[in-house]
Nucleic acid binder design. Structure first.
Lengths: 195, 195, 195, 195
DNA sequence: TATGAATGAGCCTTCATTCAT
DNA sequence: GATGAATGAAGGCTCATTCAT
C-alpha cells in the first residue's frame, strides 16, 4: 500500500458521490470513476464499501471537532464559546455543500453509523459541548442544577435539526443567519436563574 | 384486494423486522414470515418494499401528530402545551420499542425519507409546534421577537436527539425522565424576557 | 363443469387479449377480466394457460379448414378451387382482425405450437391443398411431375407470408387484393407445361 | 468491456441453448454455463436476455443476406440468381442445425421480432429478392406486370415454410433436395408469358 | 501497485395456479 | 359452479468483491 494520498482522494470522491446519489445507491465503481482510479484500487485502501463511509465520517468528524476545539479555545467565557461553536458549526457546513449533504442526510443510514462506527467521534463532540457546559455551571454562568448530559443533546440536536432543515430545504437562505437565534435560545435556556 | 387488516398487519410486521435488522438488510420474505403470510401476498397490498417503509412512516407519524394534537388541546397555556408535548413525545417512543428504533434510526435512510415521502407529515408536526409558539408569542408568554421557525426546529431537534441517544444507548434509563429538563431549557430559552 | 358457453367465451376473450398484448405478456387474469369472469373460473374449463392457446388454435384452425373445404366443394376444377382457397384464406383473416394477429403472430411461439399441439390441424390444411393438387395432376391440369408435398408448402408459405406482412404492416391495404397475384403465380408455377 | 470474442461466444452458446430449450424456457444461467462463463459476465456484454436474442438474429440474418448477395453476384441472369438463392438458403440452414432451429422456430416469438428489432434485416432480404425480380422484369425474363412486392413475399414465404417444415419434421430428408422444386415453381410462376 | 474483467451470491418481484368460502 | 385472495416457485439482474495480468 503505497500512495499516501489515495485514501484521501477516495474519501473526497466518495463525499461527492454519496452527496449526489446517496450511500446505498452509489456503486463502488462510481466512487472509483469520480476519483479517477480503477475500482479494484479502492480495495487496496479500504476493505469494504462500508469502511469508506465509516472512515469518511470518522475523519471528517474528528477534523471538525478538532477545528472547533481550537477555535473555541480563543474565547474565554462559556457563553462566548458556545456562540462561537454554533456559528462555526453552521459556517463549516455552509461552506462544504457536499459534506453537509453527506453528514446531515446520507450518514444517517440505519443503525450502522450512530451506533458503532462513529459513536466515538460523535461523543467527542458531545464531550466538547459538555465540558463547556460544566465549566459554565462551575463558573456560575449556567444554572446550578443543569442536567449537563441532556443539555448537551439539546444543543447538538437543535443545531443538527436546523442544519438538516437547511440542507433539505435546498439551502434557500444563509444557514449561519440562524446561528444567533439558536445560541440565544439555548443560552437563555441554560442560564443561571438570576440572568 | 380485500382483507382490510392485512396492510396493517404487514406494517406492524415490518416495524418489528426493520427494528431488528434494518431496512436495507431486511428481506421482503422476512416481513412476510413475520406477518405469517406468503411473500407474494405483500404485493397485493404494497407495490414495492419501499412503499412499505414510506407508508409505515406516514401512517405512524400522522397518528402520532394527531394524538399529540388531541392531548395538547386539553391544556390551555402555551407552556403547559409544550411541556405536555415533550412528555408525550418521549412517552410514546418509550412505550413502543420497535417503533422507536425504526423512527429514530431506520427511517433516517438517506434522502428518500426526510425529503419527499414523509416531508408532509414531518411538517405537520412542525406546524403543531410552530402554532403553539405563535400563540405564546401573541399571548406575551414567549419573547416578542422569537424567530418561530428556528425555535420550532430547535425544540424538535432537541427532542429528536434525546430520543435517538436513548435508543442508541440501549434504553438504559427512562426516556421520559428527560422530558422536564428538555422542556425547561427550551421554555426558559424562549420565554418572555421579563420572566 | 356446467356452463357450456364458458369455454368459448374464454377463447374469444383470449384472442382479443393475445392480439393486444401477446401470449407471454398476457396474464390469465387479463383473460378473465376480458371475459367478465373470475380468474379461478378459467381453471374450471382449462387446465393451464397454454391449454387455452392450444385449444384456441385447434378450434379456429379446424373451423377454418372445414369452412374452406365446404366452400371449395362448390368449385369443380382445381384451378378454381385454389383461386377460391387463396381468396377465402385472405378474406377470413381480413375480416377477423384479432384472430389474424393471433394466428399470424402470436401463435408462432417457439416450438410449442407448430410442433405438437397444432400439428394435426395444420396438416389437415396441408391435406386439403395437397388433395386439390393431386386431383389437378390426375386431371392433367398441373404438371405431371409436380412434387405435391413441396408445392403444398410453397402455396401455404406464400399465403402465410403475404398475410403476415399485411398484419405486421398494420393492414395499410386490402389483403384480399393480393389474392389473385398469389394464385396466379402459383398456378402458373404448377401448371401443365403445355399451358 | 474488453474481450472482443465474448459477445460472439455468448451468441453461439445462446443459439445452442435456445435451439435445445426454446427462448422463454432458457435461463440466462443456462447460456452462461453453455458458454463456460459466469452469468453476471453476460451482462457485461448484453443488457438483457432479450438483447441477446435480438442481436443474435440481426447478426445472423445480416451475415446470411451478405453471404447470399456475394454469391449471387456471380450469376448473371435473374433465373440463375434466384435458383442459386433458393439453393443457398436451404444449404445454409441445413448445415447449421441449431441456427436453423432458432431462426425458423424460436425467433418467431410474438410481435417482438418480425416487428421492430429484426424488421430491418428481414427487409434487406426482401430487397435482395425484390431487386432480382425487378431486373428480371426489366430484362423481359419475368412477366411484365409482375407485382414484385407480392412475388417477393411469395418466394420468401415458400422457402420459409419449406424450411420450417423440414426443421419441424426432424430433418428426415435433405432440405436442399427441395430447392429445385421450389425454384422451378416460382420461376415458372413469374416467368414471361411467352415462356 | 494498479487495473478492470469476471465472478456469483443474493433478492425483489411476477404470475400461474390453488382452494377456502 | 364461481370467486379472487393467497400462494410460493422461479429467474432476471445487480454489484461488492476478487484476482489474473
Amino acid at each position: 500500500m503505497r500512495d499516501p494520498d489515495k485514501p484521501q482522494q477516495i474519501i473526497e470522491a466518495a463525499i461527492r458521490v454519496f452527496a449526489r446519489t446517496g450511500y446505498y445507491s452509489s456503486r463502488v465503481s462510481d466512487i472509483a470513476r469520480e476519483a479517477g482510479i480503477a475500482s479494484g484500487t479502492i480495495y487496496l485502501y479500504f476493505k469494504t464499501k462500508e469502511e469508506i463511509l465509516v472512515t469518511l465520517f470518522r475523519e471528517k468528524m474528528a477534523e471538525f471537532v478538532a477545528f472547533l476545539r481550537r477555535e473555541i479555545a480563543e474565547e474565554h467565557d462559556p457563553e462566548a464559546k458556545l456562540r462561537r461553536l454554533v456559528r462555526l458549526h453552521f459556517t463549516v457546513l455552509e461552506q462544504n455543500a457536499a459534506l453537509a449533504e453527506v453528514v446531515q442526510v446520507e450518514l444517517r443510514q440505519g443503525h450502522k453509523f450512530f451506533r458503532g462506527a462513529s459513536a466515538h467521534e460523535v461523543s467527542a463532540y458531545f464531550d466538547l459541548i459538555g465540558s463547556i457546559l460544566e465549566d459554565g455551571v462551575a463558573a456560575g454562568r449556567f444554572h446550578a442544577d443543569l442536567p449537563v448530559k441532556v443539555a448537551t443533546k439539546v444543543l447538538f440536536g437543535a443545531m443538527d435539526q436546523v442544519a438538516t432543515s437547511w440542507v433539505l430545504g435546498k439551502r434557500g437562505y444563509r444557514l449561519v443567519d440562524s446561528a444567533d437565534a439558536v445560541a440565544t435560545i439555548f443560552l437563555k435556556g441554560v442560564s443561571h436563574d438570576g440572568v
